[in-house]
Simulated scan of single mutants.
Amino acid sequence: MITLEWTPLEGRPRKVVFDSQPEGACAWLRCEYERRNGRWRLCGCEPLASLTLEQAGTDTDLTTHRGEGDV
């Protein structure tokens, strides 16, 4: 599972969760949540065929992760 959380300058905290589905009909499930009244509220989910994550390194290199299952 990969989770990203952020707080916009104006608005409620949000997070997106990428959950691998090794036995499901899709490779990954992406779910987005919004923080309301101290609890995370599900906004919606979307099945994904694949997932690619890129991270810029400190030496300007780019790290890329691709997967159709666990990263």
Rank of each mutant, 00 (worst) to 15 (best):
I2L: 06
L29K: 06
E5H: 03
F18G: 06
E5A: 05
G24C: 00
L29A: 13
L9R: 01
R36T: 08
N37K: 10
G38C: 13
Y33D: 10
C31I: 08
A49H: 11
G67S: 12
M1S: 08
D59R: 09
T63A: 13
G24P: 00
D61K: 07
V17A: 07
V16R: 00
T52C: 13
H65I: 00
A56L: 12
R35G: 10
W40L: 05
A56D: 12
G67K: 01
L62V: 14
N37C: 10
R66V: 03
E54K: 11
V71K: 00
A56W: 07
T64P: 04
L4R: 02
P8Y: 01
R35A: 15
M1T: 03
P22V: 05
T63C: 11
S50Y: 10
L62F: 08
Q55L: 14
G24F: 01
V71N: 02
G57F: 03
D19K: 06
R39Q: 15
D70V: 02
W40Y: 12
L9V: 03
R14V: 07
E46P: 07
L9E: 13
R36W: 07
P22L: 06
L53G: 15
L42Y: 08
T3F: 00
T7C: 02
D61M: 07
Y33Q: 05
R30L: 05
R36D: 15
H65M: 03
Y33M: 03
G24W: 01
A56M: 12
G44W: 05
W40C: 11
R41N: 15
P8S: 04
D70M: 00
C45E: 10
L53E: 15
V17D: 05
L4A: 09
T64N: 06
A27P: 00
D70R: 02
P13S: 06
L29F: 05
N37H: 12
T63D: 13
W40R: 03
R36S: 13
E5Q: 08
P22K: 00
E68R: 02
T52A: 13
T7S: 03
E32N: 11
R41I: 15
H65V: 02
C45T: 03
R35M: 15
N37W: 09
M1H: 04
L53M: 14
L29R: 09
W40A: 11
L48R: 07
M1K: 01
E68Y: 01
R30Q: 14
T58E: 15
Y33F: 09
S20F: 01
R14C: 13
T58A: 15
G38Y: 10
E54Y: 11
L4Q: 05
A27F: 00
I2Q: 04
P13M: 04
Q21S: 09
P8Q: 02
D19V: 06
T58F: 12
A56S: 13
F18N: 01
T52I: 10
E34K: 09
E23P: 02
L29P: 05
R66P: 01
P8F: 02
R12T: 09
T63F: 10
R12S: 14
Y33E: 08
T64E: 10
A56K: 09
G38E: 12
G67D: 09
A49W: 05
F18R: 00
E23M: 06
R35I: 06
R41Y: 15
L42S: 11
T64K: 04
G24S: 04
G38R: 06
Y33G: 05
T64C: 09
S50L: 07
A49P: 06
M1C: 03
C43F: 10
A49Y: 09
A56Y: 04
I2D: 07
A27E: 00
